[in-house]
Computed example of a mutant assay.
Amino acid sequence: MEVIFQRVSATAYFSTATRNDGVTVRVPGYDRTSPIPHDLAHFVAEHEFGLARGFWGSVAAGAMFTNMKVVDGRRRPHADERSKRIMKANGLWLGAGEAVAGAVHDAVEEGHTAERALVALRKMHGVVSTEPLPVGVEDVERAMSALRAAEDRWAQVPAGEGMALSWRIPVYDPGLGDRRSKDRKGGRRKPRGVR
């Protein structure tokens, strides 16, 4: 998925995401007081931590959050049902994405160490899960470094222009299961070219 963070003014932005199905959606931004747009922090942190089921991964899979709108392309049949299924299945992960983005964003903007950000991240993670957090300080340092680089790039984008980033994490769609690989009679489909 290709995402463009479009600067409107010094404090306003929006994003467009062109998904692999050819649909482009617009995600509104919000006026901000920080140098890093919230959605950009989400993108970088979720991508660095490999969160296929956070906000941007859900968008890539076909989720349409209420504040989004299609600006190009044609949605597939049953797209609304698919969107609801993705958001429901990814609910816990959407919270995890918010925690990861918040911890990394705050650490970069407030000049905290990766160790301090990891402590904050563990606290936030504890609210949504009893499982241990599967990341270490090196992971947080890598995400913070990537966000600083994105911040530097964003600072160079003039009003009316955008910054493009590629989402390269495979899409997770909880409803597909084995349905793609079975024919209507319930048997396995043969690969193309096999008789």
Rank of each mutant, 00 (worst) to 15 (best):
143 A>K: 05
130 T>Y: 11
128 V>G: 10
120 A>Y: 11
139 D>S: 09
132 P>D: 05
114 A>D: 02
128 V>D: 06
128 V>A: 10
136 G>W: 02
150 A>N: 08
148 R>D: 09
120 A>F: 12
134 P>I: 02
149 A>N: 11
122 R>A: 12
156 Q>R: 15
127 V>D: 07
154 W>F: 04
129 S>Y: 03
127 V>Y: 06
126 G>E: 08
144 M>Q: 04
121 L>I: 04
125 H>E: 04
138 E>D: 06
118 L>P: 04
132 P>M: 00
132 P>F: 06
131 E>W: 01
142 R>E: 07
129 S>T: 10
143 A>S: 10
128 V>W: 11
139 D>E: 07
114 A>L: 02
135 V>R: 07
122 R>Q: 08
143 A>C: 05
148 R>F: 15
134 P>Y: 02
114 A>Q: 01
139 D>Y: 02
155 A>G: 04
140 V>R: 01
137 V>N: 04
153 R>F: 14
135 V>W: 02
139 D>P: 10
131 E>C: 06
145 S>Y: 04
130 T>F: 11
154 W>Q: 03
151 E>P: 08
145 S>T: 15
125 H>A: 08
135 V>K: 09
154 W>P: 01
114 A>I: 03
141 E>Q: 15
131 E>H: 01
134 P>D: 05
122 R>I: 06
139 D>V: 01
145 S>M: 15
115 E>N: 11
131 E>F: 06
149 A>L: 12
139 D>R: 02
146 A>C: 11
127 V>C: 03
147 L>A: 02
134 P>E: 00
129 S>Q: 11
151 E>T: 10
138 E>I: 10
131 E>T: 01
149 A>G: 10
140 V>Y: 04
127 V>M: 13
132 P>W: 03
136 G>C: 00
144 M>P: 01
125 H>G: 10
147 L>T: 02
125 H>L: 14
146 A>K: 08
133 L>P: 02
116 R>P: 06
116 R>V: 04
116 R>W: 03
127 V>G: 01
154 W>N: 04
151 E>K: 09
140 V>Q: 04
153 R>T: 04
144 M>W: 01
126 G>F: 14
150 A>G: 15
135 V>I: 09
130 T>M: 05
120 A>L: 13
153 R>A: 13
115 E>W: 11
154 W>D: 00
146 A>T: 10
